[in-house]
Design a protein around this nucleic acid. Structure first.
Lengths: 189, 189
DNA sequence: ACCGCTGGTTGATATAGATCAAGAAAGCAC
DNA sequence: GTGCTTTCTTGATCTATATCAACCAGCGGT
């Protein structure tokens, strides 16, 4: 089984015998560091598995960039609003390093249901899990201090510290780079 | 068309001719103030439209109640994890006032697809919208002050101020009741 | 009408985290 | 390797918001 089939199979839970056919819809595609996967206000018709590299999802607020999310190897990246509803993208998505992606276009995505019997359910399951993750994230802002959010991040996604600039991690956690730096320092001792 | 059919039709975008059949799955059911719709750690097998009243979704953190969300008339209430995946509920959900609900049980929900042709898609659309709402909420914590979140809440859901205790609104917005009180006071002048 | 309780307001003080500024380190191009 | 740019760290100060405490108002029950 190709690496591409493995990624797709794991993520969506597609039956092995359907994997080869499914995989043909996903094209390999590369992105150089700093290239944009998607621009706010334009259409984003692509959903991609990240085979290598990392991307950040952000938007401008009062002239500053606010990082909503960082996606890394083994995860999916897209602008959900655009891919689901055909609206213009809500987010800027930019490569933080050179990326290798397996990408499917919106019209092909909508055709997966033609031969994967329970596709709409798999899709529903996938989005539900994303929803639950965001629920946890909202709760973390309601109930945790910056330090606690940092600790939680350490446990869940420590590897990102070696892969992406810390300033973006800080923004994603809702703190300044200075605060993140001090927390790191404090926790080393 | 009954009020029940209207609620359901509006929310999920079900074709008019299927509405009567769909509506039979939703039972009217009442909840008294302070009664629990769902308890954390137990199963929550119900999804309900709120015909009247309001409920709050919360969890305990360090002995304190943290309000994740308040749902009011015209909205849906459930524990998504429990209803989707059959897990135990992540949240406590309690009636803030006497409530009239239109409720469907989990097994009936799963049977709607038998006669509503594009049901899985309608469900997917519904959850996607919830996801986008949470995305905005996360962004509000990353990029806005307590005062800005309050202002935004005023525009979107001002009516809740007359319906539920302010302390829960404060918690949901990520601030203390004292801060909310001061912001309200400041903005009246 | 009165009592109690829950929720809201107001003031005084404390503090987590932001901001501003300067320097150090780490990447990257040539 | 050298220099330039970007990122990270550290320190000093400031500020939004939390905390603590007291008081007040409204409402439901009797």
């Amino acid at each position: 089984m190709s690496s591409k089939e493995q990624y797709i199979g794991q993520y969506f839970g597609i039956q092995p015998q359907l994997l080869p056919q499914t995989a043909t819809f996903f094209k390999e595609h590369a992105l150089l560091k700093n290239e944009y996967f998607c621009r706010q206000g334009r259409n984003c018709n692509t959903l991609s598995f990240i085979r290598s590299g990392a991307l950040r999802v952000f938007a401008y607020q009062d002239g500053k960039e606010v990082t909503q999310w960082i996606a890394a190897e083994g995860e999916l990246i897209t602008d959900l609003s655009s891919i689901m509803f055909g609206t213009t993208a809500r987010w800027e998505i930019q490569a933080l390093s050179d990326c290798e992606l397996y990408s499917i276009e919106r019209n092909d995505l909508n055709r997966l249901g033609d031969f994967i019997p329970n596709w709409p359910n798999l899709e529903k399951t996938f989005i539900s899990k994303c929803f639950l993750m965001l629920e946890d994230r909202v709760f973390s802002f309601l109930s945790m201090t910056a330090e606690e959010r940092y600790q939680q991040f350490l446990v869940k996604r420590m590897h990102l510290f070696n892969e992406v600039p810390h300033q973006y991690i800080a923004s994603m956690l809702g703190m300044t780079p200075e605060t993140l730096s001090r927390l790191r320092n404090k926790n080393l001792k």
